[in-house]
Design a protein around this nucleic acid. Structure first.
Lengths: 111, 111
DNA sequence: GCATATAGGTAGGAGTCCTAGGCATAAAGG
DNA sequence: CCTTTATGCCTAGGACTCCTACCTATATGC
């Protein structure tokens, strides 16, 4: 089955998560909602993508998790950026800029 | 082993190939060189990515192949876009635009 | 009492890209 | 003449990411 979904994240998910977490402590479920909201529904982060990604980023030492209560009095895992996570975010931002510049170079080539 | 290469194509390879082929009939090896040149060496399309991608695009009916002689008198498989390939390219261009816009929305979010 | 939203998770498969190899011929350098 | 390099095509296998489809549990709304 071919991937045709327009929401396909194209490897940007890690960067998007790091960026959203950089805005302040936030739990997983809220991260996916934030990404969807801010992107005006372009991105839809499915739970099967979200949670493995969070565990991945935590394993790599970029995110730190802590169980806390939400506003509504429920338990949730709140994530914060580590120092290394902040560095990683900067690296990914730079790489994304270069990538999209490189793509633009090719797309603008008219001969 | 983690993927850390900055040349990582992030799912853009199909679009880039379609775009380069849209510029005129060209063979596989030259496609990878073109992409590397135009992107100022940011993208490096390895042969293990290139040829499977070309076969994929041909299987989907977006590219058409024909054996011809190069300038230097060697045989090579020249690719051209089919009508469906042209449509696909336009769809991918639009999707790329939307994707990068959506990413930009999130990256510019300062709170 | 039951559906929906919130909040966490896993398993399995599909798809893409990479490394590492193989094959063949032409040009260039010693 | 012979060996290296560039050109040109290809595949196998593994790593990684993302998706669908499932599971669990609690709070809220009807």
């Amino acid at each position: 089955m071919t991937q045709e979904k327009s929401e396909f994240l194209k490897g940007t998910l890690d960067m998007l998560i790091l960026k959203v977490v950089a805005l302040g402590p936030i739990h997983g479920y809220a991260i996916s909602q934030r990404i969807q909201q801010i992107s005006r529904d372009f991105f839809q982060v499915h739970q099967g993508s979200l949670y493995p990604a969070l565990h991945r980023l935590e394993d790599r030492g970029w995110l730190q998790a802590e169980w806390k209560d939400t506003d509504t009095g429920r338990e949730a895992k709140f994530y914060t950026l580590t120092r290394r996570g902040r560095k990683q975010l900067e690296a990914e931002l730079l790489n994304w800029e270069r990538l999209s510049d490189a793509v633009a170079l090719i797309l603008r080539t008219a001969e």
